[in-house]
Amino acid sequence: MPQISAGVSAQGWRSRMVPIPRPAGEPAIVELRSGGFLTHFSAMGGIDTEHVRSEDDHVYVTSTTGTKPFLFVLAPKHTHVKVKRHGGDSGGIARWHLRTIAPESLRKLESELEGDGGEVLSGSRGGEFSFSFEQKDGVAGFVCTDFRGNPMDITHEGHMRGRVKIPGPGYITVVALGPWKLKRL
């Protein structure tokens, strides 16, 4: 597993690019959280180097909901996270909080796990799992990357319940607004 620096944190109430320093070519585990129930934020990848400055069209978090944390794996090519406040940057008191998390602190997906809301898991091997999402609406699913941050393809049957084949080893981002379960078959 790569060594990724943890402990980067930032907060604000307006849209801005936040640098995420780490060794070149390494991904980062990032958490975005809204400080209020009525204010929503999104997170996109950004690049800001001596030679390139751009905001990528890759959206990691479409919209925060309430104050639950939203975790994602920032690709190695992105040097920054663009936090965008929905509804413009006019006043308001709700803040966003962004921080990086050490990969060692992630829960390991071995045989069976349950959670509530989005989470990034660490998987030492792939396999076939049954899954269920206990939410009534909204987006739910999985995003997998290897430990270097490269995307990996997954196959699944079903939307809210079914089977998923997770490649491994790598990071598994569970995209969910409510409770979920994964169990190795």
Rank of each mutant, 00 (worst) to 15 (best):
P2T: 13
P2C: 03
Q3T: 12
I4S: 07
I4M: 12
A6C: 13
A6P: 11
G7V: 08
V8E: 02
V8P: 02
Q11E: 14
Q11H: 11
Q11K: 09
G12W: 09
G12L: 07
R14V: 15
R14C: 11
R14Q: 11
R16H: 06
M17T: 07
I20P: 01
I20Q: 00
G25Q: 07
P27Q: 05
I29W: 00
I29F: 00
V30D: 03
E31I: 10
L32P: 09
L32K: 12
R33V: 10
G35K: 06
G35N: 09
G36P: 13
G36N: 06
H40G: 08
S42C: 05
A43E: 09
M44V: 08
G45H: 10
G46P: 00
G46M: 07
D48K: 11
E50Y: 11
H51M: 06
R53Q: 10
R53K: 13
E55R: 07
E55D: 03
D57F: 06
H58M: 10
H58C: 04
V59I: 14
V59L: 08
Y60C: 12
T62F: 08
T65C: 07
T65H: 05
G66Q: 07
F70Q: 15
F72P: 14
F72W: 02
V73E: 03
L74Y: 01
L74F: 02
A75K: 06
P76Y: 02
H78G: 05
T79V: 10
H80C: 09
V83Q: 02
H86Y: 08
G88F: 12
G88K: 04
G92M: 03
H97S: 05
H97G: 03
L98H: 03
L98M: 10
I101P: 01
I101V: 15
I101G: 02
P103W: 02
L106D: 07
K108P: 03
L109I: 04
E112D: 09
L113I: 15
L113Q: 11
E114Y: 01
G115N: 06
D116C: 08
G117A: 04
G118L: 00
G118V: 01
G118S: 15
S124D: 15
S124G: 12
G126R: 04
G127W: 00
G127V: 05
E128T: 13
S132D: 09
S132I: 06
S132W: 00
E134T: 02
G138R: 03
A140E: 11
T145S: 12
G149D: 05
P151H: 10
D153T: 06
D153M: 07
D153Y: 04
T155C: 06
H156W: 05
E157Y: 00
E157W: 00
R163L: 12
K165E: 13
P169I: 06
G170V: 08
I172Y: 08
V174T: 09
V175Q: 14
A176S: 15
P179H: 10
P179C: 08
K181I: 05
K181T: 08
L182F: 01
L182G: 07
L182E: 07
L185G: 15
